[in-house]
Design a protein around this nucleic acid. Structure first.
Ligand code: MN
Ligand code: MN
Ligand code: ZN
Ligand code: ZN
Lengths: 150, 150
DNA sequence: CGTTAATCAGTAATAGTTACCATTATGGAT
DNA sequence: ATCCATAATGGTAACTATTACTGATTAACG
């Protein structure tokens, strides 16, 4: 068992770099950032520290469905939304609803402790290209209908 | 693009075995079951078919947080709960609430399409051992208090 | 039947993450 | 300030779940 978390330069820089961001970087993205300040740090050290820091409650580890882990400098329970287009993850300003757990507990013989919720959709940057693509497709269809000889 | 999903013996048996279960097996668990009837089937075939079958809406692929994929013969949107003790996944008889998406959309500039929710807790089998362990710990503490000479 | 694309078994490759281990550095006790 | 036990590190190997590839097989169509 770990007596105490020592303050190493690696650990401090990881924490600082994560603190600067409002995004939710992957371990590798954090590695690339930290490497600019500590070029000799190893990816394993980044993983180990992100794990230890999240265990001690200084950061949050996000295990999202189907993709790699992401990390969050903002603690406190909040929900996230992932863009289907570009993959970015943002906070959702919706308070984590503890009442959902109680509602679920009534329907189950489990002892329910928590829930995770994740939203999916298109971020502002990805909404426009998608509708443009839709318009082009519609035009193609119209052209096709107009042009055909049946 | 796939013209048509052919009915192969492998595909049929995978679908049958998954249909028998109310649990939510992993690809490997399905592989082990199917192997009893088709000993020469390969794990790759199981993965490929589970993917194709879920794409065509005949089964459901569950991408849960932090663990491997699971598959569900029951279609239709419903929530799941995972036991922290033994890892099993059960259905939760709570209707998937589409209104949550709308509530979230008001708080975000994303175009929200869906949400996933996953509950965590202890299943009936794992509640008892846990409370027993708790009782023993309490007894130890009491014994310790009674026994000490300070 | 014969044709053809879908599917197969077997296997290699990949991605993300964790485990290991010899060496280094931290922080509390001298 | 120096010492020391051990936490932590860099480098690398191992691992797990999943996907990709490839040449052989097979279902579905007329
Ligand atoms: Mn966040
Ligand atoms: Mn289910
Ligand atoms: Zn986007
Ligand atoms: Zn259990």
């Amino acid at each position: 068992m770990t007596e105490h978390l020592r303050e190493t330069s690696q650990r401090r820089v990881i924490l600082e770099e994560l603190g600067k961001l409002t995004s939710h970087p992957t371990a590798n993205e954090i590695y690339e950032l930290v490497r600019k300040r500590l070029p000799r740090i190893s990816l394993g050290t980044v993983y180990r520290n992100l794990e230890l820091l999240s265990q001690s409650g200084l950061i949050q580890k996000l295990e999202m469905a189907g993709t790699q882990k992401r990390f969050d400098g903002t603690i406190g329970n909040h929900y996230h939304i992932r863009c289907i287009g570009c993959g970015r993850v943002d906070d959702l300003r919706l308070p984590a609803m503890k009442s959902i757990d109680e509602a679920a507990a009534d329907l189950s013989d489990y002892e329910i402790l928590w829930h995770k919720m994740e939203f999916g959709g298109f971020c502002p940057d990805c909404i426009t290209p998608r509708s443009k693509r839709g318009e082009i497709e519609i035009l193609d269809i119209k052209k096709n209908i107009i042009g055909r000889k049946d």
